[in-house]
C-alpha cells in the first residue's frame, strides 16, 4: 500500500486512468460482439474485469519506460498511447495496422510508446523487456520496465530464467503477476503449490508485494512509488495482483468450469465501477464527468471500428516484404 493519498495525484491523471479502462472495456466489448457475429478473423481474448492493472501501471510510468504486455493488457497499450483505431486495424488485419496484417489480435506493440509486441509463447517476453531496460540504462536513460504475466505462465521456465536474470543484474523491472485464478481451464490449485506466487520472490532474493488488482486507485499510487524507487535503486520486484478472469480464456470458451460464486464475488469488485465511485467520493472525478468519458469512448469506438473496416487489407504482393531488415 502506498502511504500517499489519492489527492496527491491531479484529477487529469485520474481521468486518464478512468478513460483508459473505459476505452478498453468499450473496445473489448465491441470485439466480443464482432467475434460472436463472425466478423473477426481469428480469436478474441479480453482483459475484461482486469483493466485496472494495465491502466494504473502504464499511466504511472514515465516516458522512457518499457512494457511487455500479455493477453489481458489492452489497457497497457491504450495507457501508453495506442489509439483505438490502431487496435481495430490490428484485429481486422488491416495493412495500416501496427503489424500490417502480419500478426493478429493481442500480438502488437508500439516502439514509440515503449510497448513490445508479445509473442504467444508465455514467458518469452519477460527477458526481452529485461534486456531492453538494460540497454536503455546503459545509454543513460533512467528506464524501468513492467512485464505482465498470468498465474499460469509463472510455471514456465522462461519466468524463472527472466526473474533470476533480472535479479542477478539488478535490472529495474516489475514482474507483475496477474493472478486471475485460471490459466485457460486450469485453476491455481493445479498450477502451483506455493501459498501465494509472491512467495517465490524470496527464492530469487528480490522483494515481493501483493496488491488488489481491481483497485486502480491504490494500484496507481503503488506503481508510482515502486517505479520511482526502483528507478533510483535499480532492482526487480515481484508484484502479485489479485484479480479474476471474468470471461472465457477466449471468446470460443464458455468457461463453464469457473465457479459462478467466484465470478459474482469479483463482479461486485469491478475495477471501473470501483474507481468511479472512489474518485467521485474524493471529489476528483464527478459522476457527470465520468459519464461524459463513457459516452466519448463509446462513440470513439464506433468511429474507429468503422474507419478500420474501410481501410485496405494487405496486398498479397507484399507477402515476402520485410522478412529481413536492411538497416
Amino acid at each position: 500500500m502506498s502511504e500517499r493519498k489519492i489527492e496527491s495525484v491531479d484529477d487529469g491523471r485520474w481521468k486518464a486512468v478512468l478513460r483508459c479502462m473505459m476505452l478498453s472495456r468499450a473496445i473489448e466489448e465491441r470485439l466480443v460482439r464482432l467475434y460472436h457475429q463472425g466478423r473477426i478473423f481469428g480469436g478474441v481474448y479480453t482483459g475484461i474485469g482486469q483493466e485496472a492493472i494495465g491502466a494504473a501501471t502504464s499511466l504511472a510510468a514515465g516516458p522512457s519506460d518499457l512494457f511487455a504486455p500479455c493477453i489481458r493488457n489492452m489497457t497497457v497499450h491504450l495507457g501508453r498511447g495506442e489509439t483505438s483505431l490502431n487496435v481495430f486495424r490490428q484485429y481486422l488485419g488491416r495493412a495500416s495496422g501496427p503489424t500490417r496484417g502480419r500478426d493478429g489480435n493481442v500480438h502488437y506493440g508500439c516502439t514509440a510508446n515503449g510497448v513490445y509486441a508479445m509473442i504467444s509463447h508465455l514467458g518469452a517476453m519477460l527477458s526481452v523487456v529485461t534486456g531492453a531496460v538494460m540497454a536503455r540504462r546503459r545509454q543513460g536513460r533512467d528506464a524501468v520496465g513492467v512485464a505482465y504475466i498470468g498465474d499460469g505462465a509463472t510455471s514456465t521456465g522462461d519466468f524463472h530464467e527472466a526473474v533470476n536474470f533480472a535479479a542477478v543484474f539488478d535490472v529495474p523491472v516489475i514482474f507483475l503477476i496477474e493472478n486471475n485464478k485460471f490459466a485457460y481451464s486450469t485453476p491455481n490449485a493445479e498450477q502451483f503449490r506455493c501459498k501465494q506466487l509472491v512467495d517465490r520472490a524470496q527464492g530469487y532474493g528480490i522483494e515481493g508485494l501483493c496488491a488488489d488488482g481491481n483497485d486502480a486507485v491504490e494500484l496507481f499510487l503503488l506503481a508510482q512509488d515502486l517505479m520511482s524507487d526502483i528507478r533510483q535503486k535499480p532492482r526487480p520486484i515481484l508484484l502479485e495482483c489479485d484479480t479474476m478472469r471474468m470471461r472465457g480464456h477466449g471468446e470460443h470458451d464458455d468457461f463453464s468450469y469457473v465457479p459462478r460464486e467466484l465470478l459474482e464475488k469479483y463482479a461486485a469488485r469491478d475495477p471501473i465501477a470501483q474507481a468511479r465511485s472512489r474518485l467521485a467520493e474524493a471529489g476528483l472525478v464527478a459522476k457527470a464527468a465520468a459519464d461524459d468519458i463513457e459516452l466519448q469512448v463509446r462513440s470513439e469506438v464506433d468511429q474507429a471500428y468503422q474507419q478500420a473496416l474501410e481501410e485496405p487489407v494487405p496486398d498479397p504482393a507484399d507477402l515476402m516484404e520485410g522478412v529481413y531488415a536492411d538497416r
Partner: peptide
Amino acid sequence: NTPISESAMIGAAIGMATQGLRP
C-alpha cells in the same frame, strides 16, 4: 558472465538489439 539461462540470454539480447545495442 550470465546465469545458465539460454532463453533469458537470447530474450535479453532481443530486448537490447531492439534498443540500439549489438549483443
